[in-house]
Amino acid sequence: MKHNEKIDNAEDIVLDIQDLAIRYVTDDATTYAVNHINLRLKRQGTLGLVGETGAGKTTTVLSILNLIPDPPGVIDSGKILVNGRDVHKLSPKELSEMRGKEVAMIFQDPMTSLNPVMTVGDQIAESIMLHEGLSKQDAYKKAKETLETVGISGERAGDYPHQFSGGMKQRVVIAIALACHPNILIADEPTTALDVTIQAQVLELMKKLKEDYKTSTIMITHDLGIVAEICDEVAVMYAGQIVEQGTLREVFKNTKHPYTEGLFNSLPNMNDRNSKLTPIRGLTPDPTIIYPGCTFAERCPYATERCHTEKPQQKWINENHMVACGRYDEPDFHIERR
C-alpha cells in the first residue's frame, strides 16, 4: 500500500495520527465523534482540516494535546505521535512540557479565550516562564517582543483583554501560541469570530509568522477560501471520517469525493450572482448511530444500493490523493465536477 510505504521514509513527519477513534459516552447515548482516521502533518506544512460543524475536527485536534475531557470522552484506538512520541503515553509532567512548547493551539473565539483579569503581557509571559524557565521580568520583556511581532505595540502589554478589539485579541491569542516557538500550531477556526477585513489581516499575519517561525500548522476551518489561501494539504472530514485527502491542488482541481464536490457546489457563484445556491441536501448523520454503509450515502446523489450496505475503503488514486468512496471501485465512475 502506497500510504504505508510513505510512512517508512517519512523523517519529515512532525505529527502522525494513526487509526484514531474517539467516542463520547453519556448515560443516554454514545456519540462516535472520530472514527478511525489517519492524518499526517509534514514539517513546515500546512494542513487544512475542512468539514461541517460536528464532523469531529475539534475533537481530533484536542486529542493531539490529550485534552479530550474524560469522562465523557473515550479513546478507543489509535496512536498520536508528536515528533515521534506517543502523546497518550506521556507522563503528566512530560505532557505539560509538550503542551505549548511542541504543540500550541489557537482557539476559536478570541473574546473568551483570554483571561479577563490578567493583563495580556502576563498571559503571554505565563507560557514563556513555564517553558523557557525565564524569570518574571525576562519573560515579560519577551512577551512584549512577541506582542510586537503580531503587530501590537509592546507598551500595551499592561492592558487587559477588554481594552482590545476583537482582531487585536486574536493577535494576542496568536502571540500566546507562538511565544514558545512551537513545532506544531493548531488553529481552530481562528477567523470565524472575526469580520472579513480582520480575517484577511489575521491570515496574512499567520502566513508571515509561519514562514518566520517555521512551524507546521493544522488549520481547522469551514471556509474553503481560507484553505486555498494558506494550506498546502487538505483533509475533508465528514461524520468523524476523512473522506478525501491530498495536496491542495489535487483536492481542489481534481475533486473526487461527492461530499467535497457538494462543498464546492454550495459556494456562491461569483460569475452569476443571480443563481441560487446549491446546498448539499439533507443533514449530517446522527453521530450516535453506526451506519453499515457509507455515512454520506443518504445525501449523496451518486449513491447506489451498495453504498448503503458496504463501508467504503480508502483508495489512493495517486500518491498525493486519497478518497474514501465505494463507487471508485467501478472503473469508469466519475463525479460531475471534473
Partner: peptide, 26 residues
C-alpha cells in the same frame, strides 16, 4: 468551563496554577 481555562491547559499550565491564577481571580 471558560475557553481561557482550556487555553491555559493547552499551554501546559499546571492545575494548581490554573486554579490560582485563572479560576479563583475570576
Amino acid at each position: 468551563g471558560n475557553e481561557y481555562v482550556e487555553a491555559a491547559k493547552a499551554l501546559g499550565v499546571s492545575d494548581f496554577k490554573i486554579i490560582m491564577k485563572h479560576i479563583l481571580p475570576n
